[in-house]
């Protein structure tokens, strides 16, 4: 009888610790690693911008909060608080703004205007341009 109660306590204890560890891990989980996440959608910068301009609501449902791998030509570079931002051109003035993760800064510096590039990032929506955040260079 005694050993049964003891065993019950032991099992409950182990389960409680496991739940706690899981909860803490979940609570402190870092942002997903885009580098090792396969993209939900692969598309050209042109098509992405076009889709938002044509129907922003529809495009938002399709692309917002998705990991998007986009092909495009580099229009120019800028920085945001020390992070590289790569702007991709499209057929008209709008483009795709790609805010890179800090780890991508070094590789971004090697790039040139007019170069063709493959970038993967999380799409947040459309203002005057399509915005991707936490981007990495794929190729």
């Amino acid at each position: 009888m005694k050993s049964r109660i003891y065993r019950l306590f032991l099992i409950t204890g182990i389960i409680a610790i496991a739940v706690l560890v899981f909860a803490l891990k979940q609570f402190n989980r870092p942002l997903s690693d885009i580098q090792n996440t396969s993209p939900d959608i692969e598309i050209t910068a042109n098509q992405l911008v076009h889709d938002y301009q044509e129907n922003e609501m529809k495009a938002s449902d399709k692309y917002n909060n998705k990991i998007i791998q986009v092909t495009g030509i580099i229009k120019n570079f800028s920085t945001a608080n020390g992070n590289m931002v790569i702007n991709l051109e499209s057929k008209d003035d709008s483009g795709v703004i790609c805010e890179m993760i800090p780890q991508a800064n070094k590789d971004s510096l090697k790039l040139k205007k007019g170069e063709k590039i493959l970038i993967k990032g999380s799409c947040t929506g459309f203002l005057l341009d399509v915005v991707l955040v936490r981007c990495v260079i794929v190729n």
Binding site: F27, R29, P30, S32, G125, V131, V133, R134
Partner: peptide, 9 residues
């Protein structure tokens, strides 16, 4: 969605 946090949760 362009707001970046430290923790995913």
């Amino acid at each position: 969605r362009s707001f970046i946090f430290k923790k995913a949760l």
